[in-house]
Computed example of a mutant assay.
Amino acid sequence: MSTPNPRRQLKPTDVKRLNRTWRRNTEGRLALILESVTGPFNIGSIFRTAAAFGAETVWLAGNATPPTNPKAQKTALGTDRLVEWHEPVPVAEAVRAAREEGFRVVAVELTGDAVPLHEAKLGGDVCLVLGSEDHGCSPACLEAADSVAYIPQVGRVGSVNVAVAAAIAMAEARRQEWASPAG
């Protein structure tokens, strides 16, 4: 009698079952503030990743492009309907709204007091802030955030694409929750 190959790709039903198991083991709430992220493909990609990691809300700030942009729709593939989002407001207002919803606000940026992302406290209800493609988080954003974390990089490039940074940060927030002992 042969056993099924454990390395075969999962069928859609198996993927749904697997995702349900992870959802049951996920209690922390995750949200994002996107400050002046203008690239529609970045917005679409971030929304798709936010939906995959179970982010519940995205606050747009500054001159961020909304996910309804036709180019954003090409990468979001309809996932923007799975994540609540708010029209752009000044960043301090977005941070205030996140706090009112019970989130701790962590900016992802390189600052003198930033801690490596894997050392940042990202458990519980956390809202990650990512800034514009060109300038990152504004001084007003950094002042308003509860803390700042950065993504350690060892290569010869000093930064990653904002959509990639968002994916790394969301994955790390979930990883920390799943790795911590229950209780």
Rank of each mutant, 00 (worst) to 15 (best):
V95S: 01
G136H: 00
F53I: 11
T68R: 06
Q73F: 07
A97V: 07
L77K: 13
T65M: 04
A97K: 08
A64H: 01
L117I: 11
E101D: 13
L60F: 15
W85A: 00
F53P: 07
A52S: 15
L122S: 05
V126Q: 02
R99K: 14
R81F: 14
V91K: 09
G62K: 00
P139C: 05
T49D: 05
T57F: 08
L142Q: 10
A144V: 05
I46N: 00
E100F: 04
E109K: 02
A72R: 02
C127W: 02
H86Y: 10
Q73N: 06
A140R: 15
V157P: 11
D125V: 02
R81C: 11
I168D: 10
G78C: 13
V164N: 09
A114H: 04
H135W: 05
G155L: 07
E101Y: 03
L130S: 01
E133T: 01
K121I: 06
L82F: 15
S147Y: 01
L142C: 12
G155V: 07
R48I: 09
L110T: 13
Q153I: 10
E109W: 04
V58R: 01
K71N: 10
A149P: 13
Q153P: 12
A50D: 06
G78I: 14
A76Q: 04
L117Q: 06
G123P: 00
G112K: 13
P66N: 05
E143W: 10
R81D: 13
A114P: 08
G78F: 12
A55N: 07
R81H: 15
D80F: 11
E100V: 12
V89W: 04
A165Q: 05
A55Q: 08
L130M: 05
C127G: 11
R156Q: 13
L128V: 04
T57D: 11
G123E: 13
A98H: 09
V95N: 00
E133V: 01
E93H: 15
A167M: 08
L110E: 11
V160Q: 06
D80M: 07
N63Y: 14
R99M: 06
G155K: 10
R96G: 08
V154P: 13
L77M: 14
V91N: 10
P90A: 14
A51P: 02
V115F: 03
G102W: 09
A149R: 03
G158Q: 15
C127V: 05
R81P: 06
D125I: 04
H118M: 12
G123I: 03
